[in-house]
């Protein structure tokens, strides 16, 4: 009986550990890259003599998904959200993600009512919800002063966001205590030395 329980425990713990290790990779696999992704949309050409690519994406209906970042800014019936489809979409550096370059994403103009589905926006202490939208891409939006944006008509949350804990590293605490002590000692010595100079009649600056 005891052996059985132990085997079961080992199996459950191993399974949990494997799942934890595989989760980011699995999550990434769940969200294939956007087509077009934000980099491709940003790089679309619209300069004289090279308008073909610009004509291709500008005004087209696209779907796009990414991490809801920062905050929602409600402006009446519509709101601004920002979706990042970069290397930190599923997991950020504090959670152990590898450095993967700059952030990259798209500004999305969306009916405010739809944003209520989004429970978390990404920042230092949060990984934002992963949100998929469908809408029209504007290389230079007439309604929004020439901003590059997507006007979304539908929104779906693919994964809820979560709290991120950035644990204090013990080696940093030890280093902080040691360095702060040395700094304190030097400060004391410096003051003491200056005091002694003053006492001896030499000006201590």
């Amino acid at each position: 009986m005891m052996t059985r329980t132990r085997t079961l425990t080992v199996l459950v713990v191993s399974g949990a550990m494997l799942a934890a290790l595989a989760a980011p990779a699995f999550a990434l696999a769940t969200y294939p890259p956007n087509k077009p992704d934000s980099t491709e949309l940003i790089n679309h050409q619209n300069v004289l003599g090279d308008v073909t690519k610009g004509l291709f994406w500008n005004g087209k209906a696209i779907t796009f998904h990414g991490e809801a970042i920062g905050e929602v800014m409600v402006r009446g019936d519509y709101a601004w959200i920002h979706l990042n489809d970069d290397a930190y979409m599923v997991e950020n550096i504090e959670e152990g993600a590898k450095l993967g370059g700059y952030n990259s994403g798209m500004a999305v103009w969306v009916p405010s009512a739809l944003t209520k589905q989004i429970d978390t926006y990404g920042d230092y202490q949060h990984e934002g919800s992963i949100v998929s939208i469908a809408g029209v891409f504007n290389g230079a939006c007439k309604q929004h002063g020439g901003d590059m944006d997507i006007h979304a008509t539908s929104l779906r949350v693919l994964a809820a966001g979560h709290v991120v804990v950035d644990p204090v590293r013990p080696w940093k605490v030890v280093l902080a205590v040691v360095l702060a002590s040395i700094a304190g000692l030097l400060f004391w010595f410096e003051r003491k030395y200056r005091y002694l100079l003053r006492q001896s009649g030499r000006v201590g600056t």
Partner: peptide, 29 residues
């Protein structure tokens, strides 16, 4: 904001600056 790891980073950095600053002032009198 309860960013404890970042706070420790700043304690380390402040201490390093003060060690440099007080050290040079002590030795370069």
């Amino acid at each position: 904001f309860g960013e404890w790891d970042t706070a420790v980073d700043f304690v380390i950095s402040i201490s390093a600056c003060l060690i440099f600053g007080f050290g040079t002032q002590l030795f370069c009198r």
